[in-house]
Design a protein around this nucleic acid. Structure first.
Lengths: 345, 345
DNA sequence: CCCGTTTATGCTCAAACTGAGCAATATTGG
DNA sequence: CCAATATTGCTCAGTTTGAGCATAAACGGG
């Protein structure tokens, strides 16, 4: 029994003619594969960005992407790897699927006859090889696109200066009482206002709230109603083409969550590293500073690393032992990760 | 700038003709929306199953599903809800996206000209309303499809009796040394053989290993090479149509992981419940028995529930206080969940 | 060559959390 | 009224966590 037959069978249940839906199902759907490729260079978390100069409104940043062609690519992931390689010259290592976005009107389309695009977002982790020939690709700090996510030097000022007052206005506007949870409450939870805790993993929730409030350029571009009510054009963070900033937000949230329970942080590290370098990498991703001695205890205690026997001189102080990732942990523990929590310097 | 234009621009980078790929991209792709709808009745975790009698090889079980029609459905999720409602009469409450499966050859297709189907799997949680008019849908225990996942009465015998010996044979076969990790090691980690810990969340990994080893019927049906080497046709668990068992496996793994850090367990509970009923529901999902007094301490201590003031009589012993879910926790804590760990009875 | 500075590394300790068991309480069914 | 059965409250040792103090090993300037 084929898929098509079964589809019609499913419709026949309700006794409706199968034709209408069969027709609708044939409406053209394209699948876009998008890669958020993340690395850390000089304690800066970066993503691989494609600059599209040809845009009429000036250059637009975007992620490497391309359509999925089932005839060419055996799997979604192999299709993604092919596109990334073609556009950036990069051979991906670790990659995982993030989310599939399919909302209509999410990114502007000239007309409804254009093929509807469903975007499958992927997260890839790699070491930033700065010497790489990347055509029009470049590594760019992800805090460029999400300045409010950068807590490495304490609470970012943009929150108090811009985001909080704007969100207060938005919450005060027409607070639809039908909503299960008020605009104000949502803003409080997402952005840690009024004593609520800042959850570094809620990157997507924060971006989507700003989108909904019309405070990011993509909302204006997509013609959201909310955004028309603002006199001044908002520009929180650098915008990206299509729904790429949304995908990048998903990627950041996922990395931040995942390093806590899977040893993916080592995908971002060179083979040999000092424990402090490891800590700085984690801090670059998560934001807050960690307690150095406890990081050491946790990482060593969990058997995640082993000393290489070498030391790194010229650290500015006592030489630091070099370590390498113990791949065997994957065979020993069900969910090893860098279970670190923020603490005093 | 439209998607199509940009696609061609991307290809132009390498100076290749855009036509070939543009053609390939037009190869028909259909998006299937699949719902793993989970509930717990009488301490049995169940999924909503559609029986397809019309199949030539006898009845086949499947999940509710249908194609995504962008012209009819504003979002993927609304499309899913529409299909589920049509096929089962059920109005979904909580739903979240699981994963998008797109492998070619994953489910049998008559020929390569048939549209390639990309399946987007969703997880939905609900209370099982047994009185529901569900046409040809029915609630069925998920352990029916995954007997090796049922640890409620200790380690299931099927592991020792069938799975372990079969996997040993498979591992011994031709152990491609090129693999980054040996078949034996993979089997050990996935199935907790030789003292390795059983990780209840690795449901998908286990199913995929059995598929790869040709030990589930879907592997035979899809014409996997590995499975042809077995004289006897394996039948571990009840098979499902297409890649639905894979989606259900993903769903089970996700629920098991998620109840530990998000209060989704309450989607499965009635409004009022006793703490022991809550515990039994968690146990039904996770498998192992929990320490009753500690569950109480954790759940109450985390502020997840509040007493209604009522009690439930006829428990077989002392009456039990009734509780309700405190929705406010969502506003208070970043990641509340039932952080329970297995323990002695 | 010595000494202050800087970073790495080792160790301690109180507070909080966990796993597990004991005990008392409140119904139900004889 | 008693035995059986659950619920509920409490204790306690072992472990984990957050945080600080102390020592070790390099570097650079005088």
């Amino acid at each position: 029994m084929s898929y098509g037959q079964l589809r019609e069978a499913g419709q026949a249940i309700k006794g409706e003619p199968a034709d209408r839906d069969a027709e609708a199902a044939k409406a053209s759907v394209e699948i876009g594969l998008n890669a958020a490729i993340v690395a850390v260079t000089d304690n800066e978390p970066v993503a691989l960005i494609i600059r599209n100069e040809a845009d009429s409104a000036g250059a637009t940043d975007g992620l490497p992407f391309g359509p999925f062609s089932p005839l060419q690519h055996r799997t979604l992931e192999s299709g993604l790897r092919a596109w990334v390689h073609r556009q950036t010259g990069l051979e991906l290592g670790y990659a995982e699927q993030l989310y599939t976005f399919g909302d209509r009107g999410r990114h502007a389309q000239p007309d409804d006859l254009a093929p509807h695009v469903v975007s499958i977002g992927y997260l890839a982790l790699t070491q930033a090889k700065p010497s790489l020939d990347m055509q029009n690709g470049a590594w760019r700090s992800w805090y460029h696109y999400f300045p409010w996510e950068d807590w490495r030097r304490g609470r970012p000022e943009i929150l108090e200066d811009t985001i909080e007052p704007r969100l207060r206005e938005w919450a005060a506007q027409r607070n639809a009482p039908a909503q299960p949870i008020s605009r104000q409450e949502r803003a409080r939870i997402c952005f840690g206002i009024e004593g609520a805790a800042w959850d570094e993993e809620k990157v997507l929730e924060r971006y989507e709230l700003l989108y909904e409030a019309g405070l990011v350029e993509e909302a204006v571009r997509d013609g959201r109603e909310a955004s028309r009510q603002w006199g001044q054009r908002p520009r929180l963070g650098v915008p990206m083409q299509f729904d790429h900033r949304r995908i990048l937000a998903t990627a950041i949230g996922r990395v931040r969550a995942k390093i806590k329970y899977r040893p993916v942080i080592f995908e971002l590290m060179p083979d040999d590293f000092t424990l402090f370098e490891l800590q700085r990498t984690v801090e670059a991703i998560l934001g807050p500073h960690l307690h150095k001695q406890n990081v050491r205890r946790l990482v060593e205690g969990a058997g995640l690393v082993e000393p290489t026997g070498e030391v790194k001189m010229r650290t500015g102080g006592r030489p630091a032992k070099l370590y390498r990732f113990r791949r065997e942990v994957l065979l020993e523990r069900p969910a090893p990760g860098v279970r670190v929590k923020p603490g005093k310097v």
